[in-house]
Design a protein around this nucleic acid. Structure first.
Lengths: 177, 177
DNA sequence: AAAAATTGTTATATATTTAAAACACTTCTT
DNA sequence: AAGAAGTGTTTTAAATATATAACAATTTTT
């Protein structure tokens, strides 16, 4: 299959991931989670939540007890934790390493949290662990890079990354409507 | 609006982005691009391509000449270049810095190429430029990090990134079906 | 020129995600 | 106990992304 088509074939959609994570959070905060609670937190109607959760029940990810209180399967719990940790780590990378505006970092992290592979997640975590640790090379690197990044030395018009001409410098469109 | 809902509100869907990029590539390679050429390269039917391209025409991103040969607006050209450069840069980051398997890096980059903000794109580019340059701190960092990454020192069970417990270590699910 | 192949569009269909509204059921208040 | 409020589901509807198949128009081959 063409690589680009893999996008549509994720195990969990963005929306479904947030339903699972909401249940996970509610269970942690209140000890229970109902359809209404999920809908309220996600700011969608109870009907929408009910339908999305029905498909998640059919996939065995969400269960309910005798009082219709929602429960997560072990797999769903693991998925929720993984996606949340991916967001946390990626956001931290954007803010503390790349110096991206925290609000933008939040948005970007939210968009990709469910899409990056476990391998990338693990390696990014190792990277951030090293970067946040007390290794002298990491400290020196970060300090030098941030000086560089805030200087005008980093003129992006011609660079090795894009080979001939730096296409990113043409990145002028706004992707949110 | 809730941040998580922003995911659905991208200017360009993953599918639409690939239609634009395919036209961009075909124009570069052959000097022209027709509906059939796009469909063939994307491995979708002509009908599907025709419908997707119709909506892109309605948005003013795709035009056609008197012979129905497809053209891109300036904005669409810019979008194509930006997304392709995002993929290139992010993939290079995954492979050369994080040491992610190149095949997996290709898949991950393809999934997020159209979702990250221009700000993140620019900053990641500056980062990669610095990282790939000849600054001694960058060289030392990368060397030390790769030694660390390949050693067993990076046991991810409890780390500062995830505060209390490292959730990424539980990342055992496979997101592709 | 006639037949065959190619091209682009449209009609029909499926799947997903979401909403609003109506409904049935349960729980709370008075 | 009766009415009100809250809860969950279903129905109906819209938008998006895709496919197949049928169709019309054009181009190529013979």
């Amino acid at each position: 299959m063409e690589i680009w088509k893999a996008f549509e074939k994720n195990k969990i959609s963005h929306s479904a991931a947030h339903h699972l994570m909401t249940i996970y959070d509610l269970l942690g905060e209140n000890g229970y989670a109902r359809v209404t609670d999920v809908a309220r937190r996600l700011e969608i109607t109870r009907g929408s939540a009910s339908i999305t959760l029905k498909t998640l029940k059919e996939k065995g990810l969400v269960k309910e007890d005798q009082n219709k209180f929602l429960l997560l399967s072990d797999e769903a719990t693991s998925i929720s934790q993984s996606i949340q940790s991916m967001r946390t780590i990626f956001k931290k990378f954007l803010i503390t390493v790349l110096n991206v505006n925290p609000c933008q970092a939040e948005i970007d992290a939210c968009k990709i949290e469910h899409l990056l592979s476990p391998e990338t997640g693990k390696k990014l975590l190792i990277f951030m662990k090293f970067m946040s640790g007390d290794d002298k090379n990491a400290r020196n690197f970060l300090e030098t890079f941030h000086l560089y990044e805030q200087s005008s030395k980093c003129n992006i018009t011609n660079c090795a990354v894009c080979d001939d001409e730096c296409l990113m410098s043409q990145q002028t469109y706004k992707e949110d409507s």
